[in-house]
Amino acid sequence: MEEKVKTRTGYVLEMVKNIRILALNGKNNFRKYLFDPLYEAGWYNDTSRQSTVKLIERMKEQERDPSFIHTIAPQCKRLICYSMAEGLSALGNSSIFFLEKIQWDQRVSLSSESIEFTDIIMPPLNEFMKMNSENNEKLFTEAVASAKKDEILTAFVPVRLSSGGGKIKLDSEIKRLYNNIQIASKYQNIPKCMKLLSTYIIQYSDNDDYARGDVEKLIDAMTKREPGFDTDLKNTMAIDLYYRIRKSVHSGEIRTTIQAIRKYGYIFEGDSSAKHFYDIDRLERILYKIITEKDLWKELKKESRGQ
């Protein structure tokens, strides 16, 4: 059972992101793909006298005490049951709260409540994301096609760190990362180490002076200590970037979309096993086609040369 749960936790971050995307797609979808499946599974409970915000606050206070760890999953289940009676927003927040607990502590992820919860919500969320993916391409095409010329051009402007202050900043950032990982690692906080590394890589990997060697050493060291760390990190970054792309497509922030596509390319270096590899590739083809149609290549090149 432990192996099954370990594999499942790889999908938890994706479920969190999917719920956030679902929330952007209207009440009807939220009800259909999250509320209804839980309701049909008998999770609805309208007997609580406290708001979910208060319940979450109380749980946060309790979790400082390690002896409460085994109560987290049952309490989260109750929280979700009560939140369903409070409203869709409360249900979304409670679901994300529970998923984050599952993601951050294996003792929580091994509980029967966690397994039951993810078993209920994973199939409908996957169904929603599949349906939404096609719509996403349509939205992306419309967003790029209607984007202002300047908006597309500035999306390709590189972050230049090669000279002066920029290089110094990047050097100090890698030192800071190293120190923070040492501290997190000392306290066995593997998820924190992963978060620190993924944030750093996503932010700086497409820069000229990205400290690739140092980052790889850190990942190797963490993977020796926690087998599977490298794969989980890869999944975390792919999901994070894909979520940025989908969210920015939805809100018409074309600059963020383009930057995230480029970062994905540099981080995964054509690795077809990376999550969302083919989805992102399709969006990229659409983007280049529209740039060609709008005859923007010449100006894009000027921007990328800093002219």
Binding site: G265, E269, G270, D271, S272, D281, E284
Partner: peptide, 16 residues
């Protein structure tokens, strides 16, 4: 005829 960031990523990996 066409290269996407997946291909450029591969060139970058080859360079390293």
């Amino acid at each position: 005829n066409y290269i996407s960031s997946a291909g450029i990523g591969l060139l970058n990996a080859a360079l390293n």
